[in-house]
């Protein structure tokens, strides 16, 4: 499999009135062509910032301090805004959590959809009306593909006339309509009910397979990741602390935080007692020294308080950032 996206050592800071928020502190991962990567983590762990940085959609108070984002070998961080605009939307698109805020309430679905298609359409010596006609047909076809009942009617509707699940389908259809190579899906099913979530996930998987698109699936729901992703990256306090194949990470989580997260989940399929992780997520204005997880970690050692653990490969496609595995002070693997 060839690599489509390589994110290396990404460091992002935000200037706020409270001080500098250290949002990303060295994020490294890669996405292969046609692969779904799950990006998991709790509120404030930096999942969304990672997505926005790849899209180069960060707000003005953000600073990219370090790192590179290689997309097809081109460093996105080195492109000027015009070049980036050509990639954004066409090569990389996004699906967001709340479709309601990303669809314009005063335009019909059809108009918004056609707008996107026309913007990226090549001028093939066609008149404007012909192009519009083509775009309309293409949009209807895409809506049909995502399982929208009566797509022609939906094209004439306003966003408020559609339910949450239907709106999300429109977003998916729009995202796939330009045949992007990478889709960043930020909590696309979080606002939906489980039965609708199941429908939407099914459609996303289908479309992804059909067009062999790579997807970065950002969610806090580990269940969803287990269902859709091939590999998962777990984030904590602006770093990826574990990255590996879904089977490996869920079966044998190495990082104490990943273990904690999995044990904290109540399950529908069996009786378990959720084990809470003590303490709270650190404040990223003043993150703890050393490993950011050390104040909450059961296996904390002296070295954890001093130095940040490196992100090391521990097995095939399995990376972890934890001193338990760096060979320091002996290995208390299952203490």
């Amino acid at each position: 499999m060839d690599k489509l996206l390589e994110v290396k050592d990404l460091v992002v800071r935000f200037r706020t009135y409270r001080g500098i928020v250290k949002a990303l502190n060295g994020v490294t991962f890669d996405v292969n062509r046609g692969e779904i990567i799950g990006l998991a983590g709790e509120t404030g762990s930096g999942k969304t910032v990672t997505g926005f940085t790849i899209m180069r959609l960060l707000p003005p108070n953000a600073m990219i301090i370090n790192g590179s984002i290689l997309f097809n070998g081109i460093d996105l961080l080195k492109l000027d805004s015009k070049e980036m605009a050509n990639i954004r939307g066409k090569k990389i698109t996004a699906i967001f959590q709340d479709p309601h805020t990303y669809l314009n309430p005063v335009f019909r679905i059809g108009d918004q959809f056609i707008d996107i298609l026309l913007h990226h359409m090549k001028n093939e010596n066609k008149s404007k009306s012909e192009m519009k006609k083509d775009a309309w047909a293409q949009a209807v076809e895409m809506l049909r593909e995502v399982g929208m009942p009566a797509p022609e009617n939906v094209m004439r509707m306003y966003p408020h006339e559609l339910s949450g699940g239907m709106k999300q389908r429109v977003m998916i259809a729009m995202a796939f309509s330009l045949r992007p190579e990478l889709i960043i899906a930020d909590e696309p099913t979080t606002a939906l009910d489980v039965s609708i979530q199941a429908q939407v996930l099914e459609i996303m998987k289908e479309m992804q397979k059909k067009y062999n698109t790579s997807v970065i699936f950002i969610t806090h729901d580990l269940g969803v990741i287990a269902e859709v992703a091939r590999r998962v990256a777990v984030m904590y306090a602006g770093r990826i602390i574990e990255f590996g194949r879904v089977e490996d990470v869920f079966k044998e989580p190495l990082h104490p935080y990943t273990q904690g997260l999995l044990f904290a989940l109540p399950r529908v399929d069996k009786d378990v007692k959720p084990q809470s992780i003590g303490g709270t997520v650190p404040d990223l204005v003043n993150p703890p020294k050393g490993c950011a997880f050390h104040p909450r970690c059961k296996y904390v050692m002296d070295i954890c308080r001093e130095s940040v653990p490196n992100f090391i490969e521990i097995g095939p496609e399995h990376y972890v950032a934890c001193h338990l595995y760096t060979g320091n002070k002996g290995g208390i693997k299952n203490a």
């Binding site: 489980v194 039965s195 269940g223 969803v224 287990a226 089977e247 869920f250 079966k251 399929d269």
Partner: peptide, 14 residues
């Protein structure tokens, strides 16, 4: 039954 079957389970082996 449908509701129970559509909850994602955090275990890819199931």
């Amino acid at each position: 039954q449908a509701l129970l079957s559509s909850v994602p389970i955090p275990d890819p082996t199931i």
